[in-house]
Design a protein around this nucleic acid. Structure first.
Lengths: 179, 179
DNA sequence: GTCTATACAACGATAGAC
DNA sequence: GTCTATCGTTGTATAGAC
């Protein structure tokens, strides 16, 4: 599948360094087909990476289910599991493309905005915009360090280890004292 | 100054999208001079971005000075102040170039590794490698969201606000319970 | 629909005049 | 040392044969 190959190459190289030729070669099709089917590199990126494999609202519904005190845990575990699994290429491609493609920032920002705003609307509480940004900063940072910059201890750490370590941070950003 | 122009352009565009021509134009010199003086784009990037404006050890010395309970605060404030100020271009160029230039990851990783390892060696405690990576993840994430992805609440937030919100996270990653 | 060949642009780098 | 001109490469996109 061409879209899969595109996600993989964009995930490895980011938007700029990824070439249409290498994506096509990986998928076993001709480079001309990319332009024929998707209207160019831009269109391919939009279809392959900017269409996220899940909706924020759907994820909110899943995570609402459970005790509020363990919300941080469920969030960290959910993201790590998805990023370690099949949805990971999309996230990695997004992160790696932030420098080279404006829309990557926008999609990432909108996703976290909708996701955490949805969660926080249930919880009440003040300073929601800041809380959202704080949560996003820790999750994105964890993703960047684990999947892109590849700090060894973060790469090798088990999901459970990271959940235990990071969950209290999210929990505080969502429901605790931040001023 | 050519190095300043290089930092600015690399900070705005990342390594891949930045062009030698645009850097030279910004500095008011000829593009050929870049190759003549620095041996090419690669050499310019190495001199302008990969040579950090301060040493980790120097920063450790500064931050050691003060009560341990406020170490998280001092760290967050120090980084935000530097990144908001003149040293910011270098950091932003590094972050933005992670996708397009292998050495950017390495320099960033080594910096945080040396910096936090230096701090932790004073504090004792277990699981040092993981603590280092956790601290790095929060700081890098905050930087990415504030300076690159530009989530509005994080961009507009005062330094004091962020220090209050994020310091407890760093404090716990450094000296608290993470398992 | 699919592939071959190619046009077109932009980049990094270099050679050579001054 | 400095600039002009240009080379070679690479990447996107298209035109046209089958």
């Amino acid at each position: 599948m061409l879209l899969e190959a595109a996600r993989a190459v964009f995930a490895e190289n980011g938007y700029e360094r990824a070439t249409v030729r290498s994506i096509a070669a990986r998928a076993g099709v001709d480079a001309a087909m990319v332009n024929h089917w998707f209207g160019g590199k831009e269109g391919l990126f939009a279809q392959a990476v900017l269409k996220l494999p899940f909706e924020p609202a759907e994820l909110v519904t899943v995570l609402r289910d459970g005790p509020v005190e363990e919300l941080g845990s469920r969030i960290v575990r959910t993201f790590l599991t998805r990023w370690d699994g099949v949805g990971g290429d999309t996230f990695q491609a997004l992160i790696r493309s932030i420098a080279g493609h404006e829309a990557a920032s926008t999609v990432l920002r909108d996703f976290f905005l909708q996701f955490f705003t949805g969660l926080l609307s249930d919880l009440g509480g003040d300073r929601r915009e800041l809380r959202v940004a704080l949560c996003a900063s820790q999750l994105v940072g964890m993703g960047l360090v684990r999947y892109v910059a590849r700090f060894p201890p973060m790469v090798e750490a088990e999901v459970d280890t990271l959940v235990t370590a990071v969950a209290p941070t999210l929990q505080r950003y969502l429901t605790g004292d931040i001023d």
